[in-house]
Design a binder for these strands. Structure first.
Lengths: 190, 190, 190, 190
DNA sequence: ACCTGCGGGACTACCCGTTGCT
DNA sequence: AGCAACGGGTAGTCCCGCAGGT
């Protein structure tokens, strides 16, 4: 049936958005359903596991979507340093245009739901792992000597930059990270 | 009265701990009061602003305490690279010993309460700023050429490393960040 | 179609069982359908009246089944006192073997659904009436002088005995009732 | 404080009434609070154990109140047979005047909550035990030869009579039980 | 004057019995 | 026959004041 996919998908989209901006506990079930135009009762039909399952699936989807986006950005870059720089710029634009509400789509949930739900924590961890794999493969193609460790540093500094930028309402930390990573990548990749 | 300060301080300590591990919205007022042994009604005597004020003050205290801790750690280091490395190691130990529950004491609240309370967001931002100032001053003393930008990168990559490590229940990201920062600092500081 | 009758009957059996042990309100439609293996939507095909109709029919079936059972038991007894005693013993065994969950199949529903559904209350009343008729006819055959009133007493004390036995998790009340009824019947029936 | 006892007691009274007429599962928390004029949040202050604790305490109170009532009735009777008869008559009047809604204050809850809460089941069992003790003591004073067994029969047949009378909306079963018990008691007590 | 027991609703996640469209 | 949807319902917890005792 077509409508099933529709409603389910709409719920996931709404959830991904709200969880990104508000976190897991700050987002109520009523908000999730009314924002998506879906009735309350339907949620537990599509997600029998309740809020937890909905969050885990939404997180997984967010992870995949950002992976696709970043993949496309770096694919069009002439070299590794520019690719990473463009990716960071895209994240900075998204952050600023959302009035500093949309940072990393996983981070907030990863921090405020990890303590009580391994299912959600694992979904976040898988997202981060997929991004790491993506960056590592990209750095390998570009000729990096230690792609795995370097990818971890790239991912960590971007995540930290997003956290600082969102909290301070200023993209300067992201720009500083971008500048530093360019230098580091150019040194690492001849 | 002496006990007033006592109760207030105990509430702040409990709040700092619970907010660090669970975040703002996941921590209920009952949990905050019962965990500290304080009666529920007293909270609004000591913190007329309610949960929000309690969180803001607890965050400020957490920021200051970590600043003191990190200040002491780097003060005893022979050079900048080692100082930062020791600080990261201390954070990694705290994370691992708490079964990956205690990451950055500000990050969870910064992300899940920033959307609705500027007061709390500013408390977090001030904390980050104070750490940045601390690191920048340290790097300046060590002879860094661009201490401000470098301090931002150091702070961001540590924050990102903590986020990744906590989410994946593995301190490897923190170690990768430490290794990278050592190299970067040794290059930047002759 | 044969399967229709099958599904319908399976639903009735499941319902009779769950209503007996849990009552009307404590038994959800989900439990009723999943326990019977039938899909939820099918219930309203077989029982357009919904939960209420299902309960009423299940109650009627339970009443008839117990009537048949008791009829067979007393038919094989040498005299009235022994017949009633055997019937009580059979109920006591059923209660004990079900860990004191299966008392009277009508009583729980009769009490917790009577307030809101005359249809269900009447089904229960008809069940009790049929048992009364059965007992009265039996006592008449045995030569009782006031069979109607005596049958009422027999039925009431058995029902009360089942209630007390189930609540106290002890069949002693049922045995006390049995002993008393034997004496009363032997006095009433020379 | 005086108000504490007030609110708590009002909640218990409301609960005892609703649980008697509707049973445990058919009685919602909203109904319990709005009927008593109390807000939902106060309930969990006085009864931290929630609905279950409220029900258990209400049942205990109902048991004690009926014990006092029956004690007063039989105390004023010239002999055992008349005492029991008067008690049954009082129950019949209460049943009829409430349009056959108020039967035994324990029975409905005993049947529909016993399956899931031992705490409630025990409260009901204790109520029945206290009544049994009361009747046994009374029969002993009247000179019965086997007061314990006789008290069980008296209690069981009254409970069964109430169940039948409520279900059939007719006090005839109670009157039949009364007549029978008078004969039985006069035989047992010279 | 400092504190807190008690009360107050709005809101939470969850699930109910029910019905239409397929 | 049945999947998907529908809101209103459940028990329970939220954050918060206020009256009044110590």
């Amino acid at each position: 049936m077509v409508r099933r996919t529709d409603t389910r998908q709409r719920m996931l989209d709404t959830a991904a958005d709200l969880f990104q901006t508000q976190g897991y506990h700050a987002t109520g079930l009523t908000q999730l359903t009314t924002a998506g135009g879906a009735p309350k009762g339907s949620l537990y039909f599509h997600f029998p596991g309740g809020k937890e399952q909905l969050a885990a699936e939404a997180i997984r989807q967010s992870g995949e979507r950002l992976a696709e986006l970043l993949g496309a950005i770096v694919a069009n870059a002439p070299d590794a340093a520019t690719g990473i720089e463009n990716a960071i710029e895209a994240l900075a634009v998204s952050l600023r245009e959302s009035d500093f509400r949309r940072g990393c789509p996983l981070a907030t949930v990863a921090l405020d739901a990890a303590a009580e739900s391994d299912m959600i924590r694992e979904a976040c961890a898988d997202g981060y792992r997929s991004w790491h794999t993506l960056i590592e493969a990209y750095l390998t193609r570009c000729g990096a000597t230690q792609p795995a460790a370097l990818a971890t540093v790239v991912l960590a500094s971007i995540e930290g930059g997003l956290l600082l930028a969102r909290t301070m309402r200023d993209t300067a930390p992201l720009r500083a990270v971008a500048t530093h990573l360019r230098a580091a990548l150019e040194k690492e990749i001849p």
